[in-house]
Amino acid sequence: MASTTVRTDDSLLSKADRQIFRVESTLNLMAGLVVFTLMILAVAQIVGRKVFNLPIPGFIDWVEQFMVVFAFLGVAYCQRLGGHIRMDILIGRVRGRPLWLAEVVGVLLMMIAVGALVYGSYLHFERALTIGDSTIDIALPTWPAKLMVPVALGLLWLRLLVQLIGYGRAFINGEEIPIAVPMIEDAAAVAKREAEEAMGLSLDELEGRGKDPDGGDKDKGARS
């Protein structure tokens, strides 16, 4: 599995980063497994209906309730690996302190949005739990799915906090490569990584070349 460069060391920040990453990875795998299960369920639905005239009762209701797993649980994992898309046509041109400052601002803005949404989505869950809400067909309660949202966004908020500290430290100390944050990559490196991720393995491996486990050699091309 390809991963973006995230530098680690023995600091507390890096330890926190790796601990949280473990949780994030588990949740992301759960999301993947739900995608897989959904595919199998859809096939079961077709076969059940066509062959046995036994459709899965409330199939759509079930799918809608479980979608929240893959729509949200991986959100912090994706942020850890720098996977949420952005335009780096400008930010890709600066380095050092100005770059870390821009990152600090970006992460702070994200924290404001995510923080407000954690609260708002918690209230949305709370209404469903206390007043009541259920699905259209087989009246499944919706609160468990609604609860997933503030939980996943809460974890994302923690992840952002780690990144804020990482970038903040880099800004103050004028670090070259900060700890616990995904490195900005130029368009060529991003494209290559996306291509690798699209196949779930490294192109370098396929080409029979070695692969730097931290991907530190990917910084080449357009920017230099």
């Binding site: 009541g132 259920s134 009246a139 309660p141």
Partner: peptide
């Protein structure tokens, strides 16, 4: 009402 029976029993 039928969209969410438990909101409006």
């Amino acid at each position: 009402a039928g969209y969410h029976r438990d909101k409006n029993p």
